[in-house]
Structures are given as C-alpha cells and as structure tokens.
Simulated assay, not measured.
Amino acid sequence: MIRLLFYFLSRWPLWALHAFGSALGWAIYTLSPSYRRKMFAHASVAYPDPALCKRVVHSSVGQAGKAILELPFLWGRTTAEGAASCTDYIGWEVIEAAQRAGKGIIFLTPHLGSFESTAQVFSARAPITVLYRPNRNAQLQQIIEASRKRENVAIAPTTLAGVKVLLKALRRGEAVGMLPDQVPNYQEGVWAPMFGKTAYTMTLPASLFHASGATIILALGIRKPWGRGFTLILEKGPESLSKEPHLAAAEINRAMESLIMRYPSQYYWGYERYKAPKGQPDNHNQTETVL
C-alpha cells in the first residue's frame, strides 16, 4: 500500500506536492500539541526571543510538510528529472576545485531544505556514496533502498561496514554525503555544543577527513517558492578540523549553525536534535565541551 501511494504521488508535479505538503505541515502542527512543543523547544535554543522564535517556527511549518511530500518526486523519478529540479547552482567552482585536488569530497548538510536533491544533482555528473540510517519499517526500507540506490549513487548504512564503504569511496577520489546533525548511535558520537546547548554529535565527518584528506563542502538544496524547484548552494567547509573529537564535533556544529541561521524557515525544527541515543546517558547539562 505504501509503495503504491509513493508511486502515485511521484507522478504529481512538484508545485502540487509542495502545495499539499504545506497544508499537511500545518495540519500536523495544528493537531499535534507535542509536535508544536517540540518545534518551539528546539527553535528557542537558537532564538531565545519569544516573538522571533514564533516567527521562525511559523515560517518553517509549511516547509516541513513540503519536505515530506517532495520525497516521492525525488525518489520516484529518474536522476535526470531529480537533478533538473535544481534550476540554479551557486558555488559549483568549489566542487571543481575539490575534484582537481583528487582526495575526495565530504558533502555536509544539516536537516535543512531538500538535502535529497543535492545528491541527485551531483550524481548526474559523478559517483557519490550517501550515509543513511536504515528504517525499521520494512516497506519504507525497501522504498529507501530502491530509491536512493541508483546509477552513480551508492548507499552506506550507519554501521561499521558503512563507514568502511565511505572511506573506500574517498580513497578512490569520489564523494560521500551525510547529515552531520543526525544523532548518531550510542558510542558513535560525543556531546558538543549546538546553539549553546550540548547535542550528541557524530564524529564520523572528522574521522573521514583525517583518514583521507578530503575536501569538506557544505551543500544545501533550498526550496524556491511556488514549487519552482530548488537552488543548489555549495560552499567550502572547514579546511581543517581538530584531532580531538569533542573539538572537531563543535567545529562541525558551528558550520551547521551558520547555515541554519541563514535559512531558518527551511530547517527541521521538529527533528530531535538534542535527544540522547538509546543506551547513552543524557548529558545535556554538561559543560566540558562548550567552547
């Protein structure tokens, strides 16, 4: 049933999916008090002024719904169709410089905008391996694997085997992509500040950087109004990272903060950024990693 619904929605034009997605976002926000509380709790960390926090949250509600319904479009169509939805590129020269360096590329983007579209644009030109967390729902997992694994796109699960796949790709001079603000599994991260509050943060980007010497690039797929597609924004990330895991995680988080503050309406404020992974003590109040 889920696969049929996904296929049905994938035939819709992007403008229609975004229109219905915006309505869906507001419906969820209106009907779910827990979701509203979560969005305000997370946004208030970055925007402590209540009036500004409210404006940011309200501007992001419809965007969150668009993020859900644009997935069938991006996953259910060809790479060429998905890549074509990015109608403007800013900073492609950063990729060209990294390719000339020949040590691979580590693409980083927070839960912001259409991060699914960024991989499709790049894969239309060169191979990329994308880190992903397997879904516990078997039907959704089948859709994810079938949709993300395509020509020039390999997927690597958030396991030790997946990390090895990413490192091999970098050593071949290829690109990898991940969401560094995704809460990692127990013992696969450290507590580091994110908007001044400690968040369990993956150490993988820094580990891959030090093992390969790859170029870090920040990549964003920003939604255009009225379903007119996306703008791909590329910027060079940190040129160096500390070898101390807590410090490196904080450096990555600061880079993510700068992107989020520029496009707060397209950040997923409902994402559980500050949760502790299963088995990991909740250290939100620790201060040792706050720089």
Rank of each mutant, 00 (worst) to 15 (best):
126 A>V: 02
268 Y>D: 02
223 R>L: 01
190 V>Y: 03
107 F>Y: 12
16 A>F: 12
39 M>P: 03
34 S>E: 14
212 S>M: 04
288 E>Y: 10
35 Y>C: 02
164 K>D: 05
286 Q>S: 14
71 L>K: 13
201 T>Q: 09
229 G>D: 04
61 V>Q: 01
157 P>L: 09
165 V>E: 11
120 Q>R: 15
128 I>A: 03
43 A>Q: 01
274 Y>L: 07
235 E>Q: 15
280 Q>K: 02
285 N>Y: 07
32 S>I: 05
99 Q>V: 11
36 R>L: 09
208 L>M: 07
84 A>L: 10
118 T>D: 01
26 W>I: 03
229 G>I: 02
55 R>C: 00
280 Q>T: 15
65 G>E: 07
219 A>C: 11
198 T>A: 12
124 A>T: 01
31 L>F: 12
54 K>E: 10
134 P>T: 08
226 W>G: 07
238 P>N: 06
210 H>Y: 07
52 L>E: 10
30 T>R: 13
193 P>Q: 06
9 L>D: 06
185 N>L: 11
252 I>P: 10
206 A>W: 04
100 R>Y: 02
53 C>F: 01
47 Y>N: 02
32 S>L: 14
103 K>Q: 08
89 Y>L: 15
87 T>E: 13
39 M>F: 05
240 S>R: 10
54 K>Q: 12
131 L>S: 05
56 V>S: 05
163 V>R: 01
69 L>I: 06
127 P>F: 04
291 L>T: 11
256 M>T: 06
124 A>Q: 13
231 T>A: 11
207 S>W: 10
175 A>H: 11
203 T>Q: 11
214 A>P: 05
16 A>Y: 05
72 P>T: 08
194 M>D: 00
29 Y>S: 02
179 L>S: 00
193 P>D: 01
262 R>T: 09
106 I>Q: 09
131 L>N: 08
47 Y>P: 08
216 I>M: 14
262 R>S: 11
177 G>S: 11
214 A>N: 12
232 L>K: 07
70 E>G: 05
199 A>G: 07
18 H>W: 03
22 S>V: 01
237 G>Y: 04
247 L>R: 14
172 R>Y: 00
78 T>M: 08
260 I>C: 10
98 A>T: 05
90 I>P: 00
186 Y>A: 14
264 P>V: 04
271 Y>T: 12
30 T>H: 07
155 I>M: 11
28 I>H: 02
43 A>W: 05
126 A>F: 04
181 D>V: 04
137 N>K: 15
28 I>G: 06
88 D>L: 13
119 A>V: 12
97 A>W: 02
26 W>N: 04
16 A>R: 13
162 G>H: 09
41 A>I: 00
175 A>C: 14
284 H>N: 00
215 T>F: 07
259 L>A: 03
261 M>R: 10
248 A>L: 04
168 K>C: 03
184 P>K: 09
57 V>C: 08
77 R>H: 06
